[in-house]
Design a protein around this nucleic acid. Sequence first.
RNA 1: GCCUUGGUGGCGGAAUUGGUAGACGCGCUGGAUUCAAAAUCCAGUGAUUUAAUUAUCGUGCGGGUUCGAUUCCCGCCCAAGGUACCA
Length: 943
Amino acid sequence: MKYNHQEIDQKWQKYWAENKTFEAKNNSEKPKFYALDMFPYPSGAGLHVGHPLGYIASDIYARYKRHTGFNVLHPMGYDSFGLPAEQYAIQTGTHPAITTAENLKRYREQLDKIGFSFDWDREVRTSDPDYYKHTQWIFIQLYNAWYNNDTDKAEHIDTLVEKFASEGNIYVNASSDDEIEEFTSNEWHAFDDAKQEEFLAKYRLTFLAETVVNWCPKLGTVLANDEIVNGVSERGGYPVERKKMMQWNMRISAYAERLLQGLNDIDWTDSLKETQKNWIGKSKGASVWFAIEGHGDLKFEIFTTRPDTIFGVSYMTLAPEHELVKQITTAECKDAVEAYISETSKRSERERMAEVDKVSGEFTGAYAIHPFSGEKIQIWIGDYVLASYGTGAVMAVPAHDGRDHAFAKKFGLNILQVIEPKQALEEGFDIQETSFDSKEGTIINSDFITGMEVKEAMAVVSNKMEEQGFGMAKINYRLRDAVFSRQRYWGEPFPVYYKNGLPQMIEKEHLPIILPEVEKYLPTETGEPPLGNATVWAWDTEANKVVENTEINNLTVFPLELNTMPGWAGSSWYFLRYMDSENKIDFVSKESQAYWGQVDLYIGGSEHATGHLLYSRFWNKFLKDMGFIDNEEPFKKLINQGMILGTSAFVYRINNTNTFVSKGLKHLHDVTQIHADVNMVINNELNVDAFKAWREEYNNAEFILEDGKYICGSEVEKMSKSKYNVVSPDIIVEDFGADALRLYEMFLGPLEQYKPWKTDGISGVYNFLKKLWKLYIKEDEFVVTDTEPTKEALKTLHKTIKKVKEDIEKFSFNTSVSTFMIAVNELTAQKCTSRAILEPLAVIVAPYAPHIAEELWSKLGYETSIIEAQFPEFNEEYLKESSHNYPIMFNGKKRFMLEFSADATKDEMEKVVREHEKTLAQLGGKAPKKVIVVPKKIINVVG
RNA sequence: GCCUUGGUGGCGGAAUUGGUAGACGCGCUGGAUUCAAAAUCCAGUGAUUUAAUUAUCGUGCGGGUUCGAUUCCCGCCCAAGGUACCA
């Protein structure tokens, strides 16, 4: 009987499904363990070899936890809303729900073939109305909440309304929009509903506001930065501009400090915490208001981290999008400023941040007044200042800030030194040539702070500004409120209708509001989102249901929101749903979430570091504030699996044409690099016909070939459907079995590391499985006996137990695979047949290669799953060595080996080494200066 | 640009706290078996040098600390991920 992976895989996958072997119970005498994977987006390309990497790791850990006595929750589901299905719908007219259902089916089949210990009864899908009704409900909770800085938590909006009614907003300490007009309780009562709502919106945790987006007029849609290449749309190559739009936003900034502090309480890698910390970007500094000459009371606010340099200000820079620019620009400067703004609107924010050497700007003709000195300061606009960061305005101190310096130099603006460096600078240092950005120094040329140290000056300036009413110390966060509207079809509809232009929430009992059918998935001709095409998309407030648009009367029937929610909406809370996925009423019951608590182990890609992982923490904290769940942080321990990278293929389109030029000739043209599907490329050569048939826009494409071939470029990058470089695990499972795939993915290298995919080494792990099999079954015979194990076999077994246990606990799965190989090689050489060795061996291998382990377990005579078996205990007795072979080194270089008994003392060993003839030969008879003996490691002779 | 991670043989990688660099696997070379091949088994395999012993070099590059550095420190180079509407 040979090792037949296909038969064994099927047999045990069927057994696990039928016996619900991996069902998690919501109560148990065993301790609980919650192991979670980041759920996949089910793309049309199917599961690729990168997906299972993390799933296999968490599966090994989850199975190990079961072997050590835990009640394990290990669920899986799908992040099933998203752009690709919608894109496909636009291209083919197929409803995204159909595409998604097909993709999902394929994913499930693929996942099933790998033998995961998932509890499939708890599966969730974000695009399922039974799921997204809760996403809609959470949205409503956020709408009906504000953040009270005094209690440092979110509260129901009613408590804010009470405050307004009793004392106005003057004493309210909330996270809110900047610069809210003050009102008294009397004024509040005098406001009409619309006015009251206008004020409440400035405090709500989700609110409508104007936000800048990448607008592509030709496609009539908003684009992700991802969809823009070289300033034009990736699809079609159309121009893109920055435009303001009314959008739903989430006030994540209210949680900035808690998101930052919470990092101290979770077991995540330092690099990931660092990334989130930098993303939140806390900085201490000051807010300063500058008056504008000739504009009466008009002032604008800047944020600076260096209030100590306020006397070094030589000009101001506003973001070109700053709201005041139009108002203050003088007639003479108008044309140039407008041209510059229009130019800037074509550049993406990322370009503006990246291209630091492209210094550009324009003088507005207006002057600010220095609050202390009263001097006139030129106001410029420059694209190095971003509207979305801080207040979109900076006070420029060229002597002490690199970017301000470059700007001042280019435009011949004054550079005034106000800090004297503490340490003498290199000779020839000239503040006119290079800025001095360090905070180590003494203030000069600065009125009342001259002579102070930087730190002291910062505080003094802040205090003085506060006294005089034009500034104060302030903490600023880089973290911006998150835009929550998408002009897309395939996402959660908002549970929102508009009455007199004001948003109204729909009651919980009428949820879900189901995504309507549309004829076309594109934006409407008037530029509205795809839901603008829906004909049944109005809310009847009497019947409490969605009705035909023709019934809209704005008295009882109102238009519904046309935007949908972003991809991260559904993924921000799915980990809670798994705890209680059958709950028909609430998103999770109090009891279920109390039992499962935090996710004990979360495995997923580091590319989610600042998106999903921050948004989930935000929603989790909010839900806790509102009393729905108990834990402040959702994910106790988190491991980033490194991505498996793909090899992408590129074609080169000559700009503004539909002609593609082969790689070797691309330097002769201005070209745009575009991804081609790797499945259309063999040995870098493009299958031109397949490419033409790939997309409608390429049907008539023309090609400039070299040597009769179209040669593609290639790059190693993320494996992703959008890069068309996806490789599927199916063939590997078919040819080598699920256990080989599992072992191989682990064997590739450390879990956390990025690695390009290659199939070359798979035969190694397959050979290992065959050798493992042969320890138990030779020819057709089951050869395991009850003979006493040898000392060597016990040593092999126990060092394997020790190493594998340590490896699993530190998520070093690649080294376990090597350890198994060594163990099997040794036991084979020892001709071991003892049950006392081979039975525990099957259990240690089981988390990694569960199918073969189950089969061997049943051959060993067991009738229940191997998952019931206890993980074997390590016994140190078997590993004791009577001697150790020491390398004898001279000045760090190994020269020969010497064996010493385990109980030899340091002095004894030193003596032997000193007197050894080879030592004398090495040193030419001279006595060693020193001998260093490190027990169980090395002996080093210093000559 | 900025933030994060990584760079070790032909390839994937190992090396627990600063202690024998290259475990394990792939590939390659030679051999056994076979009519032949597949499969399997055995031996070898960082580079230079040598018949061999040996010696020298060697963990992206340049410095430093140390008896001893893949590991710690300083300065660079290269690649990947993220950079706020891909998920």
